[in-house]
Amino acid sequence: MSLFWALLCGSLFGFNISKSLGIRIAIIIFGIIFIGHYLTILPTIFNYWDSSDKFIRYNDKSNPFKRLLIMLIPKLDTYKVIDKKLIRSIQITGLPMTNDLLSSALFVATEGGFLYNLMVMIRYPVKVKLLLKNGQIINLNLSRDYVDHPAETIGKLKIFLNDFPSEELDLSPETKHLIY
């Protein structure tokens, strides 16, 4: 997308004013979209994690430099594995979310127009926060799934939390009521 918009804007300036200005505009537009937009929203939109009975596998995009490398060379995106026995406590942040924030998966939503769901995901992130026994904190993002399919995501979250003893779950009363 960043290359498309850069070429479109650059060619408009290049054909109408000057080619060198068109090239400069294309580079600026590409940089704004590629660095300014995709680098900032990559952990929210393009994240992945799954859970088995013993392990949690996730891709870590918390480091901005690593994110940039992943954007340039996608094959560098590797998964980290956490043994569930190493988890001290689990928190859920961002739940419950009011229903008036959620919209359909359509690009044009009545609530806010174009990219409404993206703004909800960025402004009100839903995360599973894992506190490990060594003090490390790992955030697993649920925002995209929750905005697109809230009922299914809550069901999957309930199944995920059933793998842990209740003393490891540090959930607010509102979140407990929503999930259970």
Rank of each mutant, 00 (worst) to 15 (best):
D53S: 15
F114G: 04
E152M: 11
L72F: 14
N59L: 02
D148H: 15
D60K: 01
L115F: 15
K66P: 06
I56L: 12
I41R: 07
K85V: 06
I28E: 01
M119V: 13
F65V: 14
I87C: 02
P43A: 01
I70M: 08
I90T: 00
Y124V: 08
A151G: 03
G10C: 05
I92T: 03
N47E: 04
L76N: 06
S62P: 09
S18C: 00
S62C: 00
S11T: 03
D60R: 02
D145M: 08
K61S: 04
T40H: 05
N47I: 02
L86W: 08
T110R: 09
D83C: 11
K54P: 10
N59P: 00
G36P: 05
I35W: 06
L118Y: 13
S104P: 06
E152T: 13
G22M: 02
D145S: 09
I82M: 02
L106N: 13
D83E: 11
S89G: 01
Y58F: 14
V81H: 15
I138A: 08
F46D: 08
F65G: 02
I138V: 06
Y116P: 01
F46Q: 05
G112E: 08
N117T: 12
M71F: 07
D145C: 02
F114P: 01
Y48S: 14
T44H: 07
Y146F: 02
T93G: 11
N99K: 13
G112V: 11
K85D: 01
L131T: 09
R24G: 04
K84V: 09
D148C: 09
G113C: 05
K129D: 07
F65P: 10
G31P: 07
R24V: 04
M71G: 04
V128Q: 02
S103D: 07
S18Q: 00
Y79C: 13
I32V: 15
L12V: 12
L69P: 06
L142N: 04
S20G: 00
Y124M: 12
L115E: 14
S104E: 12
S103T: 08
M121K: 03
I70L: 01
L12Q: 06
I73C: 14
I56W: 07
F55L: 13
L142V: 04
S104H: 06
S103M: 01
D77R: 06
E152D: 14
